[in-house]
Amino acid sequence: MTEKKRRFPKWLTIAFFIVFAVGAFIGFKAYQAFLGPSVTAQQEYLYIKTGSTYQDVLNTLREQDIVKDVQLFDYAAKAMSYSDAVKPGRFKLTEGMSNRQLIGNLRGGYQEAVKFRFQNIRLIDNFAAILAQNFEADSATFSHLLHSDTLAQSYGFTKESFFSMFIPNTYEIYWNTAPEKVIDRLHDEYNKFWTDERKQKAQALNMTPQEVSILASIVRGEALHTDEMPAIAGLYINRLQKGMLLQADPTVIFANQDFTIRRVLNRHLTIDNPYNTYRYKGLPPGPIMLPSIAAIDAVLNYQKHDYIYMCAKDDFSGYHNFAKTQAEHLVNARKFQRALDERNIKK
């Protein structure tokens, strides 16, 4: 046999290399589509809203530059039957994550819960806005629920006291949880917070948990320092037990709905509002802000003393001078008023 006859046909060699090249290309693309790094560093989470379609997901990936190649994601997603199994949620993204990993999480609904923390909230609508920042529903939806008489009553609250149901803390809740379910979850946490021990302490004060929270909101409004809360709580409890007006400045500020007030004046005291404890005896109908856990426990474990007056110290340290008599109180009050005048604080 001659050397020419022993040679591999040229066309077959070319065909072999073409097939090999195509196979290598397809294999490389398959690797990129399924196993190669795909997720970028542009976003920390992928949010898929309730009712979203597969096309909505693709649009989000493209608009937010979440994956390197949306077409490759689309190929992998259809191969993994994700296009018909879209689930809402907040999904954690890791740079370099493959499409196979991402689609597996999306298809399985393996989302990451929101670590939701709130404190120092003054008004219900402020709380609705914070809820909307952390969950899928908008602030109008949450505000409607928080102002609902019917919903408040279903949990055993009035519309005014409903705000006291929400205990400032850190919670883990899924982003796409329905707003009614979010409220229900926070109610469950309220019930866990009010242990038998706390309920017994409230009963010893002849107060309901709601009333404790209302008083705690006043204590929280007065106290700049946690270590002074039990003393302030003891003062207001003394006033309640003596049948005196609470005369708490934070309630006057709340009644006027002017939170820029730094100096409560006589004109502020004239407002006819049930939250004005200079005119209305006893506790106001609801909390003037969300009380902290520290403030609630300060009421339940109040400091026993004979003080019924207090006035901010003239050194502006945030602490108070306490007094048993009006004469002592007037001395303290004049010192503070002079200090305000020296700093030109007129309102």
Rank of each mutant, 00 (worst) to 15 (best):
S83Q: 14
K87S: 09
S81P: 00
F157M: 05
L102D: 06
K115M: 03
M80Q: 14
H147Q: 15
I124S: 13
A128N: 05
A140I: 06
I130A: 09
M97P: 05
L123W: 00
A128H: 07
F163E: 10
S154W: 01
G89Y: 00
Y110S: 10
F142D: 08
E160F: 00
I130E: 15
F162G: 06
Q101A: 12
S148H: 07
A85S: 13
M97I: 06
L102R: 00
G109T: 01
R117K: 11
Q101M: 10
G109V: 03
H147K: 15
N126F: 12
F162L: 07
D125R: 11
G96Y: 07
N99H: 04
R117W: 04
S83W: 02
S81N: 08
G156Y: 06
A85Y: 07
V114C: 01
S164T: 09
S139D: 15
I121E: 00
F135H: 06
Q111I: 00
A152I: 01
A129K: 10
N126E: 15
R107T: 13
N99L: 02
S139V: 07
N99G: 03
A140C: 00
S143M: 10
Q111F: 00
A85Q: 12
F157C: 06
E112C: 07
L145K: 11
D138H: 06
I124R: 14
Q133H: 12
N120E: 10
F163Y: 12
F163H: 11
V86G: 02
R100P: 00
F157E: 03
T158G: 11
Q119K: 10
S81C: 01
A132R: 04
S164L: 02
D149G: 07
T158P: 03
R107P: 03
G96S: 07
G156P: 06
R122M: 12
L106N: 09
E112Y: 05
G109I: 04
V86L: 05
A85V: 05
T141G: 08
F157H: 01
H147W: 09
Q119T: 12
Q133D: 15
L151E: 10
S83N: 15
L131P: 13
L93G: 05
S164K: 01
T94F: 09
A85N: 15
D125L: 03
R107C: 03
F157A: 05
G156T: 04
I130K: 15
Q153Y: 07
A113C: 00
H147G: 11
Q119S: 12
R122Y: 13
R122E: 12
F157D: 05
A113S: 11
Y155G: 10
K159D: 10
L151G: 12
F91V: 01
L151Q: 10
F118C: 04
T94G: 12
H144R: 15
D138W: 06
A85M: 06
L102H: 01
N99M: 00
F91N: 01
R107L: 06
L93N: 06
I124H: 08
L106V: 05
F166P: 04
D84G: 09
Q101D: 14
F118E: 07
K87M: 11
M165K: 02
D125T: 10
F116Q: 02
A132H: 01
E112G: 06
T158A: 01
R100W: 14
D84C: 02
D125K: 08
L131C: 08
T141R: 08
S83H: 13
Y155M: 04
F157Q: 09
I121N: 01
Q153M: 10
Y82A: 02
N134G: 09
I124P: 14
S98Y: 03
